[in-house]
Every structure is written in structure tokens, then in C-alpha cells.
């Protein structure tokens, strides 16, 4: 929709865009800048923009605090959680979208679990995983406390409603006629799902995956209660920089930058895809 453009209006528009971006980017810029500051340039007034950059903070975070350990845990937990959420969620969403299972009631039920305040169930979760972890199945699937499986299950549970919600509208946007003709060509229902529906819904599934991954990556409360050391994630790991000598701002900034970086790269790579996906799902909501 190209409209007649007037120069002053355009200047105003890009000026506004610049301001908006400044607001959203500055806090992260400041965090990254802090990560390269020597300790003597961080808690000083007035704030310092010029300094001799140092990699000490990164050294402290990566070598002394072994921060990649937390990155590894977070990666394992969020990627597996996201895969499960997307898989299970897609199946369920397809069922809701095409077969109207439960005539909206089951969908409402699943969505309503998203309203539960996590804090209310965190102790029951703690006790459940403590007991499950002692069983044979629990041991095999690493479902005990301070094990990856416990967090994965929690994240699947808490991200499933959102994922299903998004996915239902994506599936509804796929014309039924395509599936029909595939069925008439002799494909089974599952084959239709695999060869026709899912590929068509890929942008929508990608969007769902991105959001799920972001939510898992950034989750704090469950990670903090259900892990101790071996399965701790980055958000919990950052806490180990809150020391008796105060918050180690430089290393925290370095750790935060390291932990945000994979998400940024991922989001940037997926960006084009995401906008397509969001557009796709948004046509009719």
C-alpha cells in the first residue's frame, strides 16, 4: 500500500522509528557495554561511556564460573521441551481445528491451565518429581529433582496451552480441500498430516517453536525450585554472581550477554520466517 509521501512526514516517521528503536535497544546495549567494562568503570557517577574495554568479565563468567555449563543445560532442556511442545501441540491443535474435539470445551480446559499461577503448583511439582525420581521410569527418563527431565516436563506443561492456541488458527487457515484431494489420492490420515498439512503449516509451527523456545530459555521459577546444580539453567546460573561482596556487575553482564546471544541469533535467523508465519496465522486470527 504505497501512498503519496511527503518529505516532512517521512522525516517525522523515521525520526519516530529511530526513537522507538533507541528505547527498545538501549537497555541491551548498556548491558553489553557493561560486559566489556573494567570494574572501576561500572558503578561510577557520572556513567562512563569511554573506557578501556576488557575481556576479564567474560573470562570470569566462562572460566571461573563455568557458565557454559548452564548454557548447555538450558540448551538441552529448552530444545527438547520445544520439540515436544510443538509435536504434541500440533497433533492436538490439528484435532481441535479439524475435528472440533470436545466442541470447544476441551480446548477451553487446556487454555485455562495457562491461568494457573506457577507459584501455587511449584511445591506439589517439587514433591511429585521427588517421588517420581525414585521410580524406575523416573530414573530412566531423568525425571527426578535436579534432573533435566523434570524441567522438561514442567516446561511442556506450561507452554502447551499457548502453543495449541497459536497452532489451532494456523491449521484452520489451511484449506480443507487440499487434504480432501490428498485423501482421495489414497493417502492415509496420518500421511495427509505428515505430507500435506504439516508442511503447509510450517511457518506457523516455526512461530510457535520460536516463542516456546524463548519462554523455556528465559524461565526462572521452576528452574530455581526444581534444580540444585546439575540441571541448573542460565537464569539460575546468573544468581551465582550475586555474591556476599555484592552483585558482580561486569561478570553478570558478560553472562547475560552470553546467555542472550543464542536467542538473538536464533530469532534473527527465524525472523523472516516468523513474520510470514505470524501473517499467516493472523489473517483471520
Amino acid at each position: 500500500m504505497q501512498r503519496k509521501t511527503s518529505i516532512p512526514l517521512e522525516v517525522l516517521r523515521y525520526g519516530a522509528i529511530f526513537l522507538v528503536l533507541g528505547f527498545f535497544v538501549f537497555p541491551i546495549f548498556w548491558m553489553v557495554l557493561t560486559s566489556f567494562k573494567p570494574e572501576s568503570a561500572i558503578m561510577v557517577s557520572p556513567p562512563r561511556f569511554l573506557f578501556t574495554p576488557t575481556l576479564d568479565n567474560y573470562y570470569h563468567a566462562i572460566v571461573d564460573k563455568n557458565f557454559f555449563f548452564y548454557i548447555k543445560n538450558t540448551l538441552i532442556i529448552s530444545v527438547i521441551s520445544t520439540a515436544i511442545v510443538v509435536f504434541i501441540g500440533s497433533l492436538a491443535a490439528y484435532s481441535f481445528a479439524r475435528y472440533n474435539v470436545g466442541d470447544g470445551h476441551i480446548l477451553f480446559f487446556i487454555l485455562s491451565t495457562k491461568m494457573m499461577p506457577a507459584i501455587a503448583v511449584i511445591l506439589p511439582y517439587f514433591l511429585i518429581f521427588r517421588d517420581v525420581g525414585k521410580t524406575a521410569v523416573g530414573k530412566a527418563l531423568h525425571l527426578g529433582l535436579d534432573q533435566h527431565g523434570a524441567l522438561i516436563v514442567s516446561y511442556v506443561m506450561f507452554n502447551l496451552p499457548f502453543a495449541i492456541w497459536l497452532l489451532v488458527s494456523f491449521f484452520q487457515d489451511i484449506p480443507r480441500s487440499l487434504e480432501h484431494s490428498a485423501r482421495l489420492d489414497g493417502l492415509s490420515r496420518l500421511q495427509v498430516l505428515r505430507k500435506v498439512t504439516f508442511p503447509l503449516a510450517a511457518p506457523g509451527i516455526a512461530v510457535t517453536a520460536v516463542f516456546t523456545l524463548i519462554f523455556c530459555w528465559n524461565e526462572f521459577l521452576f528452574a530455581y525450585i526444581l534444580t540444585r546444580k546439575l540441571a541448573s539453567t542460565v537464569t539460575v546460573g546468573v544468581e551465582s554472581f550475586f555474591t556476599l561482596q555484592g552483585i558482580l556487575w561486569g561478570p553478570v553482564a558478560a553472562a547475560a550477554t552470553i546467555s542472550v546471544a543464542p536467542m538473538l541469533v536464533f530469532v534473527l535467523v527465524m525472523q523472516r520466517y516468523m513474520v510470514r508465519g505470524l501473517t499467516f496465522g493472523a489473517v483471520r486470527g
Binding site: 571461573d64 540444585r228 546444580k229 544468581e239 551465582s240 550475586f242 555474591t243 556476599l244 561482596q245
Partner: peptide, 29 residues
């Protein structure tokens, strides 16, 4: 969590060697 605890974690080593123990230190905010 913190510097002093980190130092203490180093001292844990001597205990492990003297007593045939394995000590895991969990640092919490």
C-alpha cells in the same frame, strides 16, 4: 554464592583427601 564461598570450596579439597569424602558445593544467592 560469592568469593569467600569460592575460597571455602577450595578448602573442601583438603577435607576430601583426609576423610575419603566427596563434597559437592551448591552456591545459592
Amino acid at each position: 554464592a560469592g568469593f569467600y564461598t569460592d575460597a571455602m570450596a577450595n578448602f573442601v579439597k583438603s577435607f576430601e583427601d583426609d576423610n575419603c569424602a566427596k563434597v559437592t558445593v551448591v552456591n545459592i544467592d
